[in-house]
Amino acid sequence: MPLNTATKDVPTRHSTDITIRDAVIEDIPAITAIYRHHVLHGTASFEEEAPDATEIGNRFRAIRDKGMPYLVGIRDDEIVGYCYASTYRPRTAYRHTVENSIYVAPDCVGQGVGSLLMVALIERCEAGPWRQMVAAIGDSANKASITLHQRHGFEMIGTFKKVGYKFDRWLDSVLMQRPLGEDSPVIPKS
């Protein structure tokens, strides 16, 4: 699916004062700022240098060009969080599995933004050809992300111990998974 910068045909989700919609290229500066904060101050991402808007734009296009969802949460005309589903692994046998990513603006953490984004992302993925969603959560101490995923039907699969090194300490990577759609995925047609 080519990149669509129009929003007129994009369904939205409303909850109190937050709207969830498809991200557009004009959202990249705000997305970059949110991600930059998490790279520089947190362990949700194992990146150590924050990518610039050009790189985030390239990543955005790569996801959208594959027809995968990339969403933003808006409050008072400001992006307060974003999420997307990306290819889990490049080999074709994995084509019905996606990996999720969710980032919330630092001043909006704990306000339900992540939960709204998660619901919208799961719904969008269930409407597509994907049957499993996985999460690779940076840092086993990231209880907020682990709890968010559990609340939305993810189960703990395992933990890779001390696989990342950031901020002068070793970090775990927590793996979680949930089915999309039916519990027993239909065998896809070629």
Rank of each mutant, 00 (worst) to 15 (best):
T16G: 07
Y82D: 08
P188M: 04
L148P: 02
G57K: 05
K8C: 06
M68S: 03
G110N: 01
H37W: 14
V98L: 07
G42V: 00
S15I: 03
L148K: 05
A44W: 08
R151T: 03
E123G: 08
P2D: 09
T87M: 06
D65E: 14
Q150G: 07
G114T: 07
V174A: 09
P90G: 13
A120M: 07
V113T: 07
A141D: 15
C125P: 01
E48Q: 14
E155F: 08
S45H: 06
S45E: 04
A93R: 10
P188E: 01
K189W: 06
G57D: 01
S145F: 02
K162P: 00
G110H: 02
G112M: 01
F46W: 15
E26C: 06
A50G: 04
A33I: 05
I18R: 07
T19E: 15
Q177F: 05
A136T: 14
D183W: 07
L175H: 12
T7E: 11
V174I: 09
A105H: 15
R131K: 10
T159Y: 09
R151H: 12
P11L: 07
I34M: 07
K189Y: 12
R61K: 14
M133E: 06
P69F: 00
N4C: 11
C83W: 05
I31C: 10
I56H: 01
I18K: 04
